[in-house]
Nucleic acid binder design. Structure first.
Length: 433
RNA sequence: UGCGGGGUAGUUGAGUGGCACAACGCCGCACUGUUAAUGCGGAUAUCGGAGGUUCGAAUCCUCCCCCCGCAGCCA
């Protein structure tokens, strides 16, 4: 009879049959003539039990010397047992040590965040990080599925760019064969070109901001999905955003809900309560709310983290704040024709203090206005000639938005800092590992 | 970048002028159902770096480095 090689997640289907598993030692416990091995294989955790009378003496000896994260191959027969964490355990028949690991630095006890980040390559093996990054995977998968199933074409935009997209944020500069090139901070301008060619498009990739921000909500390298739709107006954009976001939440709850609740100890009823439509609040109304609550807020400015928390504190769903002052938003935002000092922009703010997760709006379709705005923002006109062409040859109303993947994952997982929402975070003071 | 809090054993902390401590981890012994096992024993530190004050500095002073939190900016 041959022994089949299985993963822990599939173990229940092999109850009573001899199987082989390959993985790493999570922990061991010894009880004299009985020894326990907690094995992890990337798909789950499994308690293996060996009695001195049931395994060869040499194998029993190995079980007594195994250390945390040593790599092993074990064989045995799985069976259901209420005493085991997970409900299934393995009656060991043999164990082979592939490599003996000495002094694994991360123990199941408490560590500081900087110690863990220094050991991020090893921290990834721990339970919570495993769940968070699995949520990230399903978030990305849901994003792609939603857009692909709603007629969007994925057309990725360049990471090397010759000019600033929004002109305001700080860019990472690189040498490009003697010329200056910058790492992209948004694919938005290129999306407008592909939207004119394909109608509904999105780009999805890393973006870079050299902002010297050191907060729980900033990375210097983060992932963003940016859909752009030809002929879409602001109200339809909000319809799209809320439907999209609800789909992501539903997919993640379906695939990872139990782990988010049990391993991350996040209150998932807060996620289950998120239903569309989300409240749509005009900037002026939001500003009034802040002033009514006694928040020292300067009308005409953008919202800070604290402002966003106050605005969302009594909400069970994310909210939309639209019509920000034209002055504080990017040059390409379309001014409201009735009230040009406000523009057709919209941010989606998540509840529970997570703040802005989506930023977007309707883009200026008018060539003259766009030229004027480029001048006002002191942007080099030559670099934008191609962008102006989009208004010269069949200009069209269009809207789009950018959703930050790490902020979304952070919200879904209830993290206190988004550095855990990406495998290898890049921050102001961290470039390694 | 500004303000605040920190840097002591592998890790997490206590220690405000007088013998460097504890817990966990690690090593050894015991234990046939452990769940971050338990009990007993053991090893482990240039107290972030450089200078200074002092009979004596982890502790006081000066400069530097690094980390954490908050804010601005933003997804």
């Amino acid at each position: 009879m041959s022994t089949s090689v299985v993963y822990i997640k599939d173990l229940k289907a092999h109850a009573g049959k001899m199987v082989e598993l390959r993985g790493w030692v999570y922990n061991t416990r010894s009880g004299g003539k009985i020894r326990f091995l907690i094995l992890r294989d990337g798909t789950g955790y499994l308690q293996c039990v060996a009695s001195a009378s049931d395994v060869p003496p040499a194998d029993f000896e190995i079980l007594g010397t195994l250390t945390q994260e040593s790599s092993v191959v074990v064989t045995g027969t799985p069976r259901e047992d209420k005493r085991a964490p997970g409900g299934v355990e393995l009656t060991l028949k043999s164990v082979t040590e592939v490599q003996h690991a000495e002094g694994f630095p991360i123990t199941p006890k408490e560590h500081s965040s900087s110690f863990l980040l220094d050991h991020r390559h090893l921290w990834l093996r721990s339970k919570k990080q495993h769940v968070v990054l699995t949520v990230r995977h399903h978030t990305i998968s849901a994003i792609r599925d939603y857009l692909n199933n709603h007629g969007f074409i994925n057309l990725d935009t360049p990471i090397f760019t010759p000019n600033a997209c929004e002109g305001t944020s700080t860019l990472f500069e690189t040498d490009y064969f003697g010329d200056k090139a910058y790492l992209t901070q948004s694919g938005q301008l290129y999306n407008e070109a592909t939207a004119a060619a394909f109608g509904k498009v999105y780009c999805f990739g890393p973006t870079f901001r050299a902002e010297k921000s050191k907060t729980r909500r900033h990375l210097t390298e983060f992932w963003m999905v940016e859909p752009e739709v030809a002929f879409m107006r602001l109200d339809e954009l909000m319809d799209l955003e809320e439907d999209f976001f609800c789909y992501i939440i539903a997919r993640v709850l379906e695939t990872c809900g139990t782990d988010i609740k049990e391993v991350l100890e996040r209150d998932i009823s807060k996620l289950e309560a998120v239903k569309k439509p989300f409240p749509r609040i005009h900037y002026k109304e939001a500003a009034k709310t802040l002033l009514d609550q006694g928040v020292p807020f300067e009308v005409g400015g953008d919202f800070g983290g604290t402002d966003e928390t106050v605005l969302t504190q009594n909400q069970t769903t994310p909210i939309f704040v639209h019509h920000y002052p034209t002055q504080v938003k990017a040059f390409y935002m379309e001014p409201d024709p009735d009230e040009p000092e406000y523009c057709l922009s919209v941010d989606m703010l998540a509840p529970e203090g997570y703040g802005e997760v989506i930023g977007g709006g309707e883009r200026t379709a008018n060539l003259d206005l766009l030229e004027q705005r480029i001048k006002e923002h002191n942007l080099p006109r030559a670099a934008y000639e191609w962008y102006l062409d989009l208004r010269k040859y069949g200009t069209f109303p269009h809207s789009g938005f950018g959703l930050g993947v790490e902020r979304t994952v952070s919200y879904l997982c209830g993290l206190s800092h988004l550095r855990e929402a990406i495998p290898f975070p890049r921050m102001l003071n961290r470039l390694s590992p």
